[in-house]
Computed example of a mutant assay.
Amino acid sequence: MSLPELGRLGFGAAGIGNLYRAMTENAAEATLAASWDTGIRYFDTAPHYGLGLSERRLGAFLTSKPRDEFIISTKVGRILEPVANPSGAKDTQGFEVPADFVRRWDPSEAGIRRSIEDSLVRTGLDAVDIAYLHDPDVYDLQAGINQALPVLEKLRDEGLIKAIGVGANSADALRECVQRADLDVIMLAGRYSLLEQPAAKDLLPLCLERKVQVANCGIYNSGLLARAVVPDDANYNYEPAPAQILARAKALAECCDEFGVELPAAALQFAVNHPAVCTVVVGASNAEQITETARRMVAPIPEELWSALVSRGLLEASVVFA
């Protein structure tokens, strides 16, 4: 089956799974409502996000919407197993939720089918549109390619899923997956952004050749590009930004400011400009953030900005005008 139309801007639902901080049910619902009101119709989630909390919150919101008006993706590879005697401890993988479940890697057919079925129960939906194999390189890339991806191809052939893909932070891992499986889409996290474009050399050209579309996410590089003024304590790859990276981000921000453009707006629009990229997926922790993101996606940006970034050595001309 062909990949459904995702739209230029998609919603990443890790935040509503209490990523880094707790979010109330009302705040999560308001954030999702704001995303819908801006015209977003593609929503991405995963069992990993809040140990199922993201899927439950997203499903509760989407069940009130016409099923043919939205696209939802979730991920497979991590099974959630209930803890026999929960101690009240918190999750240790970045989500502010009780550790009532543990994540277990299972790339087998039984594991993939169970993961999809569990996600349908949590969301309350009768189907998901896209299933990504989630972070196979974190566990066992070859097992993911040899076991999980053929299962996803089988589920697509059966009509249970419209499209299949892989989501990862590694451009090298994604390239190998694209080479060895019949994928519809990949979710590329942080490897094609205004700050850095390692995916531009091999991965994105391969996706064009194989007709694999790219959902680009992590385009703010852990928040480094998320504000018009880059703070000295900004993070990069979930850790304090090294001095060289921080200096580069500040140079990008200064150049954008000279042309009356906010750094996040330039980051958003750059991230979707490559012909292999079909959508940019961005999260939010409140309604105002997603409304602001939608505004930045359509903010006017003069062509001269891209030329200035190239002339200052902050961008390669080949990626700007790909």
Rank of each mutant, 00 (worst) to 15 (best):
P4F: 07
E5G: 09
F11M: 04
G15K: 12
N18A: 10
N18W: 08
L19P: 00
L19Y: 01
Y20I: 03
E25W: 10
A28V: 05
L32I: 04
W36T: 01
D37N: 15
T38I: 10
F43W: 03
A46S: 06
H48T: 08
G50I: 04
E55Q: 14
E55R: 09
R57L: 03
L58E: 01
G59Q: 09
A60P: 05
T63E: 14
T63I: 15
R67A: 12
E69L: 12
T74I: 03
L80C: 10
L80W: 05
E81W: 12
N85K: 13
G88H: 04
K90F: 14
D91G: 11
Q93E: 15
G94Y: 00
V97P: 04
A99Y: 02
A99F: 04
D106Q: 11
S108N: 06
G111L: 09
G111V: 05
I112S: 10
I116G: 11
D118F: 10
D126K: 06
A127W: 03
V128W: 03
I130S: 00
I130G: 02
V138S: 13
D140Q: 08
G144Y: 13
E153H: 12
L155Q: 02
I164R: 01
V166Q: 12
A168D: 14
A168N: 15
N169P: 12
L174C: 13
L174Q: 09
E176F: 12
C177H: 12
Q179H: 14
D182Y: 06
L183Q: 11
I186Y: 02
S193T: 13
L195A: 02
E196K: 03
Q197L: 06
L206Q: 05
Q213E: 12
G218C: 01
G218E: 03
N221A: 00
S222H: 00
G223D: 00
G223L: 00
A228M: 10
A228Q: 07
P231W: 01
P240I: 00
A243T: 11
L252R: 00
L252I: 02
C255F: 03
C255G: 14
V261S: 06
V261K: 10
A271S: 13
H274E: 06
A276D: 05
T279E: 15
S285C: 09
N286M: 09
E288T: 14
T291D: 14
R296Y: 06
R296D: 10
A299K: 11
E304N: 14
L314V: 07
A317V: 10
A317K: 11
F321R: 15
